[in-house]
Structure formats: C-alpha cells, structure tokens
Design a protein around this nucleic acid. Structure first.
Lengths: 172, 172
DNA sequence: CTAGCATGGTTCAATGAATGAACTAAACTG
DNA sequence: CAGTTTAGTTCATTCATTGAACCATGCTAG
C-alpha cells in the first residue's frame, strides 16, 4: 500500500490504523516483536519474508513510532528493533485477532496459549485474567506452546518458542 | 494477496486470520457490515472502493463464512450481505484496533463513540462496560458521532451515521 | 595480511494485485 | 420504448511484492 490514498478519505480511526498496520506482513512483524524478536536476521528467518519488504516495513514502523531502532553494540555496529509503548498497545487487537483465528480457522487445537505470568491463569480473547480480574498487558504475559503447534520449523525463533516464554524478553 | 502462499508456513493463528481478513479493504468491508451496510451499492459509495475489488472481497467473505448472501426481494431479484455469527465475533479485534487508532493516530478527538445500548455507558477498548461489568457484543452496541467526526461525506451511509445508530441495524 | 563469514542491508527483473473507466445485464418505471 | 436502478464483469495501466543476486562493514581464523 503505502496509501492512505483511498483510505484517508474514510475519516475513520480503523482506516487510519490500517494505513499503518494493515499492509501485508506488518502485523506479523509486530507479532514477532511482541514475542521478543529484535534482529533483522531473526525476523527474516522466522517470517520467510522477502528482504526488501522487511526493510521497508521495519523502516515504516520506526518512522511511525511503533518500533525503536537502537544500537546494542558498537563493534561491529549492530541495531535492534524493539516495540515502543505505542506498539505494545497493539497487544489487545493482535491477541483478539489471533484468538478469533484460533476459534474459527483452526482444526488441530490451539497452537499457542497465553497466560497471566504472575498467576498462571489462561487469558481470554480480551486479555482478561479471570483470577485477578484485570486486563493483562504484554509485559505480564507468558506464551506457551499449545497442542496444535507443529514442530517442523527449525529457525531459532521457532525453536525457542517451543518452550514457555515471557513476551518481549529477547528472542532467541 | 489471496495467498496463504507465504503466510501458511507460519503455523500461527494470527497468520491464518490475516490470510482471510488482512487483505487490503477487507476489514473495512467488515466494519461497514457491522454498522449495518448490506447492499453492494452502499458499500461502494461509502468505501470508495473499486468495483472489482469489492466483488472479489464480498465473494471471499461469503465463501469463508463471514458474510451471508441472501435474497431480500424477488422482483427485481436483489441480494444483500449480512454478517454471520463468525463475522460478528470480529467485533472485539475491530473495536480494539479502531480504538488504538483513535488514541494514537488522531489529533482531532474521537470520530465515533461506542456505547452499551442497554445502559448508555461508553465502552473501553476491550468492549467492556464498566457499569454492567460485562463484555458487550456487537448486537448490544450503539455508535454515536464523536467530536472529531467530519461532515464532508455525503453518501447515504455517512449521512445516516451522523446520528446515533444501533450496530447491525440495516443502513442506510 | 588475507580469505572467509556474519550481519544487515540495496537493487533489479518478473510476477501479481489494485485501480478506474467502460461495458453488460436484468428487471422495473414513466 | 427510452431511461434508470442495481449489481456486477472486463480490461488496460499502475503499483506492490517476490526472490535472487549483489554490496558493505567489520570481525575472525589461518
């Protein structure tokens, strides 16, 4: 896309959000960043995304303020991409959409389960913890593999996610 | 898109959902259906979408079981598109994404506000009614224009949405 | 010192999807 | 019978995505 070209006529906040986050691949990049993926090469291997597209998307997300690009070592100089607060707030829509997919598009059982890290209760589609009675944000969430998860992928990120993992913790 | 081509390797329910709902325009079609838009011509005028794309998207959504295409009169024969239960369940992700856009991408104040129809309380980003303590589905929701709404659009759907409106009630 | 490698990109030709304008078709309406 | 309403399809142009190849930097092993 890169357009608003047509979307911008919509005067609708959903359309505005989709201009940014509705492009092909973008939401999957954000999902990976939520898991804790930070490096170009890890996004590349885990997503199977063309390099040119990944570069464009990372750049757009940085410019929009959803990702922060920062140097994590100097020799050799290396940059990593981490979610900003604005990006982390996409957690609710991302989770809700993933759970919808789980409910309606999956025959094999859930691939990943999300838990309130501090109490171990499973989250519902609105990231609500029924035990604590609160909405749980990304920082407090733990992913665990579910019964429907395949084990065919061998990239480091997929392998790391075969065990439980606190969201946002660096991966792999 | 039309692909899973690459997404399908992801073994991720978010990717599955995006195969269906992540194509350009698709989520805006669903948003309109949630408002109560049902006829081809109304989608067309409200979205400013190319006819070929609208036809393709409506067809894909019907085939995926998110929309139901049904005859609403016989002479002349006319069809309308209405959300199925599966489609209506996208309410939470759609609302959450729209509210995120409202919070971070809008300078002028909210364009539309969503209320629990039975008690009049404003919904939060997780469709939660703080007065009743429940998550409110689409059927129980009312939209009202917010202070940031522009009044430049003159298509019938936009005009109808300048007043309060129960979601899913036929529009215009 | 130099060959190779790891990382993070850019470039480019080919493919495929979106766009917008024009056209079709069925059934009513005046 | 001419025109209108509704719901599409067709098609040439434009634009984005893809995948492969290439580039650059700075380390590391021999």
């Amino acid at each position: 896309m890169a357009l608003g070209k047509n979307y911008e006529a919509q005067d609708c906040s959903l359309a505005k959000a989709l201009e940014l986050v509705g492009e092909r691949w973008t939401l999957l990049v954000i999902r990976d960043a939520m898991y804790g993926v930070r490096r170009y090469g890890d996004f590349l291997a885990h997503l199977d995304i063309p390099r040119a597209v990944l570069s464009q998307r990372l750049g757009a997300l940085v410019e929009a303020g959803l990702l922060d690009k920062r140097r994590y070592q100097d020799n050799p100089p290396r940059e990593e991409y981490v979610l900003t607060e604005v990006g982390r707030e996409l957690w609710l829509p991302v989770l809700a959409l993933a759970q919808w997919g789980e409910r309606h598009l999956t025959s094999t059982g859930a691939r990943r389960l999300f838990f309130h890290a501090t109490c171990g209760t499973r989250l519902d589609q609105a990231a609500h913890c029924s035990a604590c009675g609160v909405r749980v944000d990304l920082e407090e969430t733990e992913v665990r593999p579910g019964p429907g998860l395949e084990t065919s992928r061998v990239d480091p990120v997929s392998v790391a996610l075969r065990g439980p993992h606190r969201m946002l913790e660096p991966l792999p």
